[in-house]
Simulated scan of single mutants.
Amino acid sequence: MKPWPRRHLPTRIAALLGFALLLLPGRGTAETGPAEEAGLDLIRRIRSLTPEASVTNRGRWVVRPARPRAPFEIPLLMAVFPTTTGWCNFYEMGPDPQDRSTRLWIRHSGERPPCVSLATWTGSDPAPDTGRPLSAEESMQPLAETDFSPADLAMAFLWWPRHRLIRSEMRRGQFCDVVESETDHTPPGGYLRVRAWFDRDTAGLVYAEAFDAHGRLLKEFLPRRFRKIDGRWEVTELEMIHRQNGSRTRLVLEH
């Protein structure tokens, strides 16, 4: 298996996954042991990552749904860019097999947590300029018939109240810090616990597992492919595997 390259761009990671920048106000860990302090310190480091520049990419979702449905693809436009108050991740995808198109915004602004909003339209209907804010339950729903949700792309688990560094180990050829993040409540279909492997040198996400309210493995996430552009490694393919229904989705960047 090809290892995670050491020199990947924070900008590309921000383009693929919507990192928040700052702590949610008024939240912290209920425990203050060394493992919790180390876990929160690492999560703070990750949340401090900001895009290096504006980036726009085209690609596609490659979806292998649960049987008996046939695999399909959905075109994708993805961008990260500065705004007057911060920065934004933007995704436009479609049409999907139901002839629907979708726009997703993950907006970051100062001290406030990111705002996630969504808009959909069908066929020849005019494309909306803005979307409506999503609730926590809505953000856990599948995005455009893929195995990714808006919460996945926003990496919502980074703002949960508890984070614990449980160990350090090799994963996919990289030395990683392993953090378990937990929350107290989750909507149907959501997660209560995420275990994530972060590269020690870059804080890049090498692998993650998400567990449901009953402690069962629900999803696995991992970067799959990379390419070297102008002497630097960039992620070109991510995969989300839904372990409970057997489906999987790849996010493939074309350029």
Score class of each variant (00 low, 15 high):
residue 189 G to F: 04
residue 141 Q to D: 06
residue 117 S to K: 02
residue 37 E to I: 15
residue 125 D to M: 08
residue 216 R to F: 14
residue 193 R to A: 06
residue 84 T to K: 11
residue 202 T to D: 06
residue 45 R to Y: 09
residue 80 V to N: 03
residue 162 R to F: 00
residue 133 P to Y: 06
residue 188 P to T: 03
residue 118 L to G: 11
residue 179 V to S: 02
residue 57 N to H: 10
residue 105 W to P: 13
residue 93 M to K: 04
residue 174 Q to C: 15
residue 253 L to T: 04
residue 155 M to A: 12
residue 22 L to E: 10
residue 183 T to A: 13
residue 135 S to K: 01
residue 221 F to T: 05
residue 177 D to P: 05
residue 255 H to K: 01
residue 70 A to D: 13
residue 19 F to E: 04
residue 202 T to L: 04
residue 197 W to Y: 13
residue 214 H to F: 14
residue 148 F to M: 07
residue 211 F to L: 08
residue 188 P to H: 07
residue 228 K to G: 06
residue 39 G to R: 10
residue 215 G to F: 14
residue 247 S to F: 06
residue 243 R to A: 10
residue 175 F to I: 11
residue 156 A to I: 07
residue 66 A to Y: 05
residue 239 E to Q: 15
residue 93 M to Q: 05
residue 122 T to G: 01
residue 162 R to K: 10
residue 105 W to A: 03
residue 201 D to Y: 08
residue 174 Q to G: 02
residue 111 E to V: 07
residue 187 P to I: 14
residue 250 R to A: 14
residue 137 E to Q: 07
residue 16 L to D: 14
residue 4 W to H: 15
residue 205 L to H: 00
residue 247 S to N: 12
residue 183 T to C: 14
residue 130 T to S: 11
residue 1 M to T: 14
residue 229 I to G: 00
residue 40 L to H: 11
residue 241 I to R: 07
residue 33 G to V: 06
residue 192 L to E: 15
residue 105 W to M: 02
residue 230 D to M: 06
residue 216 R to P: 08
residue 157 F to K: 00
residue 120 T to P: 05
residue 135 S to Y: 02
residue 131 G to F: 07
residue 218 L to C: 08
residue 99 D to Y: 07
residue 251 L to N: 00
residue 45 R to I: 03
residue 66 A to N: 05
residue 152 D to A: 00
residue 195 R to K: 13
residue 91 Y to N: 07
residue 116 V to K: 00
residue 128 P to H: 06
residue 55 V to P: 12
residue 1 M to F: 15
residue 93 M to W: 07
residue 155 M to D: 04
residue 198 F to M: 05
residue 83 T to S: 06
residue 176 C to Y: 13
residue 89 N to Y: 02
residue 223 P to W: 04
residue 131 G to A: 09
residue 148 F to G: 03
residue 206 V to F: 04
residue 163 H to F: 10
residue 25 P to H: 07
residue 228 K to C: 04
residue 91 Y to L: 14
residue 77 L to Y: 09
residue 229 I to E: 15
residue 80 V to T: 11
residue 106 I to H: 04
residue 114 P to A: 02
residue 78 M to P: 01
residue 112 R to N: 13
residue 252 V to R: 10
residue 204 G to V: 09
residue 113 P to W: 09
residue 39 G to V: 09
residue 115 C to L: 15
residue 151 A to H: 04
residue 232 R to C: 12
residue 228 K to F: 09
residue 150 P to G: 00
residue 72 F to H: 03
residue 21 L to Y: 13
residue 243 R to C: 04
residue 41 D to C: 09
residue 104 L to P: 12
residue 97 P to R: 03
residue 32 T to F: 03
residue 36 E to H: 15
residue 249 T to R: 00
residue 55 V to N: 13
residue 249 T to F: 02
residue 8 H to I: 14
residue 121 W to N: 03
residue 232 R to K: 09
residue 161 P to R: 10
residue 102 T to C: 02
residue 213 A to R: 10
residue 151 A to W: 02
residue 214 H to C: 01
residue 215 G to A: 06
residue 244 Q to H: 07
residue 31 E to F: 07
residue 36 E to S: 13
residue 247 S to M: 06
residue 38 A to I: 11
residue 95 P to S: 09
residue 247 S to R: 08
residue 190 G to S: 10
residue 236 T to N: 03
residue 134 L to V: 05
residue 199 D to P: 03
residue 6 R to P: 12
residue 254 E to I: 11
residue 49 L to H: 12
residue 234 E to M: 00
residue 221 F to V: 05
residue 105 W to I: 06
residue 220 E to A: 06
residue 136 A to Q: 00
residue 82 P to H: 04
residue 37 E to N: 05
residue 203 A to S: 11
residue 160 W to E: 02
